[in-house]
Nucleic acid binder design. Structure first.
Lengths: 232, 232
DNA sequence: CGCTATGTTGATCCATATCAATAAGTGTGG
DNA sequence: CCACACTTATTGATATGGATCAACATAGCG
């Protein structure tokens, strides 16, 4: 693995406080890989051999049971996934697949656990990261259970607009088909949901979205920091 | 707070590895309280002043938005709740209320954070606990999104039977009204769901439940360790 | 230029919520 | 010990959010 990547990973606050020698030990067993869209990365039930760190792109965490499948969370850079399984040395509870082209660092779980025991700065960083993951799953769950699909779409668009720097018109990173899956609905339903948002000033053409009057959309969407703010 | 309670808390594996003096510091600011059923313990959005440790009883974690309310998880002894908010020093994401009469230890969050920084054994124990909380939320989410309400009820009954020592007939700890809320459905729907399970050998009278042929019910419920096993 | 994947639209179905009425407990004061 | 009030449980009728199925429209792309 090239040193430039080492430095990139070292900057992540999960790794920036730990002792140099421990970091180097971790990196010896680690590697970074670029995956195309829609590649299966892990399967639920498998032993947690690697901690995954998403460096760029996005990843869908999902689960299946009895021929049904559901998306549980979307991971965005830079953050880890399946940290809890790694820590507990238990099987993954969720499967993961790339949504877009993604760069991912893979670090052997056994090493993580060993160094976690040896380096208390690292242990503390892990707690912070894990608490963040926990809270993001809770927020995803609230989003899904408390909102209708149109409300989820409206709030998603507002967040996407914020990510795009607040312009009135912006690119929608996904194909609509994948956006539907991210939002937990069928493509047909997403299509209707977009139409339903027209009275609230949303104009959707191909992969571009325009929000005529953000305040109007906000009155419908009612964004809430305890659901939509990724930082808290 | 009586010393007997100190010892009880000290036995929880979250606290059993930490240095004695740190434990005593924590206990100085802590207290244990017994709450009747249906008491609101915390409200989402409030600052996380206390880490809660459920010693006996059960607690519902729920959330509200826009006049809608949903239950997100049920906490059973012995475990902590709102640990992630405490660690991150951020507002609670969920509200909590007792489901039954419950004993709860309250430990000032600021102390937890201080000692977390000073005691690496404690930090490690927190990681383990937090990973467990994370995984239990994920399991709750899978249960809710992948199963119909009858399937959730069937699996709940199988777990309740296991908790009761595997007898064919056992007490159902809750009022049906509360069970419905725990399972994420309306009381009316629960009533119908119980009827729907009769062909699978479930007999429900008042607060007692009988499972005539567990294998038959299992064929319908399809329990899965990645959803139903609280230990992994 | 057609082929295949994606997006839209319409019709219908399903799980579950909601509303309404009634029945069955449970508790309290006289 | 009973009458009354109040909560809980059941049952029926209806509404709703969203999925599914089917038809058709587009749009990249070899």
């Amino acid at each position: 693995m090239p040193d430039s990547v080492h430095e990139e990973i070292r900057k992540l606050h999960l790794f920036d406080a730990m002792a140099v020698e421990h970091f180097q030990t971790l990196m010896r067993g680690a590697f970074v890989q670029t995956f195309p869209p829609l590649v299966d990365l892990i399967t639920e039930g498998d032993p947690s051999d690697f901690l995954h760190v998403l460096i760029s792109g996005s990843v869908d965490l999902f689960s299946a049971w009895n021929d049904r499948e559901t998306s549980l969370a979307t991971v965005r850079p830079v953050s880890t996934f399946i940290l809890a399984a790694t820590i507990r040395d238990q099987p993954y509870l969720m499967s993961a697949r790339t949504l877009e082209k993604s760069r991912i660092a893979l670090i052997p779980s056994a090493e993580i656990r060993r160094i976690f025991d040896a380096d208390s700065d690292f242990a503390r960083a892990i707690v912070t990261e894990l608490a963040l993951c926990y809270r993001s799953v809770v927020k995803a769950q609230k989003n899904l259970k408390l909102r209708t699909s149109s409300e989820r779409l409206a709030n998603y668009l507002l967040r996407a607009q914020a990510r795009a720097g607040g312009q009135a018109e912006f690119e929608l990173g996904f194909e609509k088909r994948r956006l539907a899956s991210v939002l937990g609905m069928t493509p047909e339903h997403l299509s209707r949901a977009f139409k339903g948002l027209q009275p609230h000033g949303v104009v959707a053409t191909a992969m571009r979205v325009g929000i005529a009057e953000p305040d109007k959309l906000k009155r419908f969407a009612r964004p809430n920091p305890l659901i939509d703010d990724p930082k808290t």
